[in-house]
């Protein structure tokens, strides 16, 4: 599903965010991406979501070479990736329902189908019944779950999360990770960037460790 081949990212300022990174994640796998701040976690996720383009090497997502996707095609490409942000990126002037429905509206689903899917997604993250609330009235954990519901509502095969538990206490963090595990179990590929080592060491998933833009460790307890 995700394949990096000798991929490097150098910013115009001359900073090397990623250097010669190679790895492969098969479809349906769940993995953590870890490292200190500035190690390149966010850059790596940005390359996958085409928020940035690599300077050297190749990124293949689902067999598709990202270098060959034109600017005009990027929106269609992004619809196949659910992205979860540390700061949620919710629209605060819209209800929970409208926030979660946004990807479906963008993709042009009929209204009836939207209602069904939004409720299904909210049910999965345990927020059914809060459709009419505004995000500002929810707790941090609940806001993050709205973000997850929005990311999964159109059933993307790939889920990216950038520090999804950054502002949450350990118990809520575990809840969030549990939600990701559930998606992984139904075949969704999940890549979670986090520096919460205490949490990920309690979970039986692959860990990719970045340091100074290089992939320094790749452990998979299932192997």
């Amino acid at each position: 599903m995700i394949r990096f081949t000798h991929t490097s990212k150098r910013y115009p300022s001359g900073f090397d965010a990623l250097q010669n990174v190679s790895f492969h994640m098969p479809a349906g796998q769940m993995a953590f991406l870890t490292g200190h701040s500035g190690a390149g976690k966010s850059s790596l996720l940005k390359l996958i979501a085409l928020l940035e383009r690599s300077s050297r090497g190749q990124v293949l997502i689902n067999g598709q070479n990202l270098a060959k996707i034109s600017r005009r095609r990027i929106p269609y490409f992004r619809r196949n990736i659910g992205i979860i942000f540390q700061d949620h990126q919710l629209l605060f002037d819209r209800t929970v329902y409208d926030n979660v429905a946004l990807p479906l509206i963008i993709a042009g689903y009929p209204r009836r189908e939207i209602g069904k899917r939004v409720r299904a997604a909210l049910d999965k993250v345990g927020l059914l019944g809060k459709e009419r609330k505004y995000p500002i009235t929810l707790s941090g954990g609940e806001q993050q779950r709205v973000g997850i519901a929005r990311a999964v509502v159109n059933k993307p095969p790939l889920l990216l999360a950038d520090e999804p538990t950054g502002n949450l206490d350990p118990e809520l963090s575990r809840d969030i990770m549990h939600i990701f595990e559930e998606f992984s179990q139904v075949g969704v590929t999940v890549l979670v960037a986090t520096h919460d080592l205490a949490l990920i060491h309690t979970l039986p998933y692959r860990v990719l460790t970045l340091k100074g833009g290089q992939l320094v460790n790749d452990t998979d307890p299932s192997e």
Partner: peptide
């Protein structure tokens, strides 16, 4: 946010 979740320029 729209651009992040796949909104086209036209949208």
């Amino acid at each position: 946010v729209m651009k992040l979740i796949g909104g086209t320029d036209a949208f």
